[in-house]
Amino acid sequence: MIGYLLKRAGFGLALLIVMSTITFFLVFSGTERVAANILGDNASDADIAALTTELGIDRPMLVQYGEWMGGALTGDLGRAWTTPGSVTEILARRLPVTLSIVGTAVVVMALVSAVLGITAAVRGGWADRLIQLVSVIGFAIPNFWLGLMLVVLFALNLRLLPATGYVSFSTSPLGWLAAVTLPVTALVLGGIASASQQVRGAVIDALSQDYVRTLRARGVRSASILYRHALRNAMPAALTVLSVQFIALLGGAAIIERVFAIPGLGELTVRSAIVGDVPVLMGVVVAMIIVVILVNMVIDVVNAWVNPKVRLK
């Protein structure tokens, strides 16, 4: 088990280095206009040249890469170009905000999808049709538009929940709940649409296995067959869905944070992309890859715990 985890961790590290290298060369290849962007329309050519030299982007790419990677390996992702502070500090401030929203969304999505998917698999009929409807609607409505509509309805018309802003959980749990309710709702619909369908498929698949008939022939109760045997065997498929959806939710959060003015990683990415704050963008990519790798490792551990075949490999 520990060997398995170490292998997964090694694979994750390799993925991190390869992906961040590719991203570095792509992102740093578009830095010609950055100095002009930062200084604005009234800057003189001399000012722009000076800033270009100061940022070090007139040097060969390989030199820049060596410097960045050298720092990155020791946890130093450089300084932001357009805001004060180091990239690592900025990320440390922003990441928890995004994770609290995405994490809540993942939990809500998993619970709702499990209930919907299992009901549809066992009951068929209306539950099946409901889940099909949800899947079309959830796919067709962009999460940020849903967010805007929720703001119009709950914040502007009904005045029930705040339209914008974020309160951290440690400051005020209730304030946090009020702040994340609308963003999480907007964010999860698409995930539920996709995940509930796949849970349904996984449960139907598990229930149609030969051993289910044999268990029934032995007199095992239907509740135990569904909740103990079928769900356990549907778990690996459901966990894969969870890991795919987690990545989708991270992406979705980038736009949702903009709608609700939440100071998270997504909002940071959008702002940095528009002004061209390349070190921050690199930091965001690295942070996201690390989060994705860690989440996948947790999912692997759970998978090994439920699925004896994985565990023994």
């Binding site: 992906m19 992102v27 290849s29 790798i293």
Partner: peptide, 20 residues
């Protein structure tokens, strides 16, 4: 696998300056 490891929108945002 690598292409699916990151949210697409984050990658597109990061490449915005390069892509125009």
């Amino acid at each position: 696998d690598g292409l699916m490891a990151l949210p697409a929108i984050i990658v597109l945002l990061a490449l915005f300056q390069a892509l125009g």
